[in-house]
Nucleic acid binder design. Structure first.
Lengths: 87, 87
DNA sequence: AAATTAATTAGACATTTGTCTAAATATTTA
DNA sequence: TAAATATTTAGACAAATGTCTAATTAATTT
């Protein structure tokens, strides 16, 4: 849970998730959409990968990133606990 | 959104939310359940308050903290976007 | 095989964060 | 009103975080 919330605690990383919801993208395509260095984006992608919010697949010299909604389910379950009525 | 994810990015603060889901508690009652100084807990409560995840109400010399589930709804809505199918 | 392109790794550095102790504020009790 | 109790504020400090440039690795093209 810790690494998940950590990964989500950054506007750039949340934007990346929203972009990947539209379609899969290479590291370069993602980086092009930000005014930030490639290595910085690479680092953000690494954190998202650690949290399993995204998966990476190498195709030739490119690396394609995809959203992993399984983890989104898990985190929503955590939030749902608070909607359960207590006496 | 920023301050919300920031507030959630700490195990102590998430535990406080879970405690407040059980019942409302004073700052002191919350602090007693952690092996951490009062001022540190007070600081965590402040962050949760800034994110509107909790509300505080003074009663005499005590301050009662309560969970605010309205914000939980909001954040769940953010996560739900990822469950909407894209072509 | 050398040059180009895509991406990551390494290391530096300023900023933010979580914790602490000490001090301050506010309320209640003796 | 002085002492006790509950909580917050202030300030210090180490650790974590986000960013950068330079260097490295891997794959493709000329």
């Amino acid at each position: 849970m810790n690494i998940l919330f950590k990964a989500l605690n950054d506007a750039t990383r949340r934007e990346i998730l929203e972009m990947l919801h539209e379609k899969d993208l290479t590291a370069g395509e993602i980086a092009d959409r930000f005014s930030m260095s490639f290595p910085s984006i690479s680092h953000h992608l690494d954190l998202l990968k650690q949290a399993k919010l995204v998966t990476a697949e190498k195709e030739g010299q490119y690396v394609y990133y995809s959203l992993n909604t399984t983890v989104v389910d898990e985190i929503m379950k955590w939030f749902l606990q608070f909607k359960i009525k207590k006496k």
